[in-house]
Nucleic acid binder design. Structure first.
Lengths: 157, 157
DNA sequence: AGTCATTTGTTAGGGGACCTAACCATTATA
DNA sequence: TATAATGGTTAGGTCCCCTAACAAATGACT
């Protein structure tokens, strides 16, 4: 990757990503889903299966205190529940989604979906494909690698 | 755009964009550029030419109070300056970048550039092209349209 | 000219999401 | 058994975003 390409990519990302972020957040707010942009990924992961705080934090690329607070906020809203099912290691807290959390996830997904469909409607087919492909690359590049300890634990099971 | 495509795009955007946002913010923080992710676009615009608050707010898709506060924060840091050069309309405040603001922009751009170059290095050429194309689509879709009044003013000149 | 509406910007008040530092409880290690 | 490492929480702080309410200037209409 040449220096010029890197500079261009950096400028693009720094300029565009915050715009998208704000647009999505504004749309969710106006749909009455006050706070969700950051919690959506969590609900999505948790509806697959329960996770520990450490797992969630590393998957989202945030620190443990941040995740602890986020989960507390979601508990407050009744979207998730803290539980200690693990007999082997009593330090761990498993977080699981509640029925109302699943409902919230569905609502947000539907709301975002309909709004995005509207915004993306004017795109022609090649543009949509480009968008899709570009998002795929971003996912690959920016998905945090599982931490060493998480890997260790996973292998141990 | 089919319903399924919209749902898929919505999930992708909701899951991926926040990840990218956090990664970029974390990188800037660790580079010592404490607060910049949201201000980068502003500095970038302002180094082209001075703008009014309203122009800046609409270009970034935020409200006027938010922009007023952001600019105040940047004034505090010595990055920009408020000035009233417009004789014709004394309501307007022109915001212009300072030398130290330009320097900050350069520092952030270089820092982001070198970090991104590292992260993007493993990508093959087609992936980089896909990323670039996808970002272009995002820009087109999520760049706020200039407000009616801004257009009016522009045409008047 | 005078009133009313619109536009531009600010201040006040509040919320969400992120961080580091400091701390407890539990488990692993030497 | 003492010490280190791991999983979480709490405390304190920053940034960025919002709505509501307000002031000042300009535009429009009678």
């Amino acid at each position: 990757m040449t220096r010029d390409q890197a500079r261009e990519a950096a400028r693009d990302i720094l300029q565009i990503i915050p715009l998208v972020m704000r647009a999505v957040a504004a749309q969710l707010r106006s749909a009455g889903e006050l706070p969700a942009p950051a919690h959506f990924g969590l609900l999505s992961m948790l509806s697959e299966r329960s996770r520990t705080l450490t797992e969630l934090a590393s998957s989202q690329g945030v620190t443990l205190p941040t995740m602890s607070n986020s989960i507390s906020a979601m508990v407050e809203r009744g979207w998730v529940r803290r539980a200690q099912p693990d007999e082997a290691d009593r330090r761990m807290v498993m977080v699981e989604v509640t029925a109302s959390g699943k409902a919230a996830l569905d609502r947000v997904a539907r709301s975002a979906e309909s709004h995005l469909a509207e915004v993306l409607a004017p795109l022609d087919v090649p543009s949509r494909r480009r968008l899709h492909n570009g998002l795929g690359v971003l996912r690959k590049v920016f998905t945090p690698a599982p931490s060493a300890s998480a890997v260790r634990r996973r292998n141990r099971r």
